[in-house]
């Protein structure tokens, strides 16, 4: 993993390497160099499989973090590339020409986080939320409880108990 990081660093401006496991590492890099790094990893390093493309909403920093996780099938290693993009009017370059499956991930991200991927095939089609017009629900400032209460009929009589205190009362009625 270290050697890979060193080789990659010659080409791109990489952030620090976060090694989660001996065979799993993450690195952050600027948006402009993502395509170059992905192409290099795919064509020269043998990371041919795009495992997933997902996003994390760093609401406090006003950023989205996109994670491109690649896998080396024969060595059993995974390498993740992270890209931070601004949260306002989020837009990212599509990589559907590198991996066709990326189009599906990008479609999901467009729907769930509202990140635009211009040029990705079918990216504006409905994925899971059909006819959704409001704020994308995976953004952290989306209040899912309030949305649910406003939109879906509620059946009264539901009780919610804190599991810890409830089980204490059940198991030790006289107190500990």
């Amino acid at each position: 993993m270290r050697e890979l990081y060193a080789r990659l660093k010659e080409r791109c401006a990489l952030g620090e390497l976060t090694q989660q496991r001996p065979n799993l590492g993450f690195v952050t890099l600027p948006r402009e160099q993502l395509r170059q790094a992905l192409t290099h990893l795919r064509d020269s390093e043998g990371y041919t499989h795009l495992v997933l493309l997902t996003a994390v909403d760093w609401l406090e920093d006003g950023q989205f973090q996109l994670t491109y996780l690649l896998s080396h099938r024969t060595q059993g290693r995974d390498f993740g590339l992270r890209v931070l993009i601004p949260r306002m009017d989020a837009e990212m370059d599509s990589i559907h020409d590198l991996w066709p499956t990326a189009a599906t991930y990008q479609r999901e991200l467009r729907e769930m986080f509202g990140i635009q991927f211009p040029g990705s095939p079918g990216v504006n089609d409905d994925f899971i939320l059909e006819g959704w017009t409001g704020m994308p629900p995976y953004r952290r400032d989306f209040d899912t409880k309030r949305f649910s209460e406003e939109n879906y009929n509620h059946r009264p009589g539901r009780e919610t108990r804190d599991p810890t205190t409830y089980m204490k009362q059940q198991l030790y009625p006289g107190g500990l």
């Binding site: 899912t144 649910s148 209460e149 879906y152 009929n153 059946r155």
Partner: peptide, 19 residues
């Protein structure tokens, strides 16, 4: 299906089937 169960605060599931 009765009252939403563990998905009671979900943005995408209904909570009362009989409606």
């Amino acid at each position: 299906t009765i009252n939403g169960g563990m998905y009671w605060d979900s943005y995408n599931t209904i909570k009362r089937l009989d409606d």
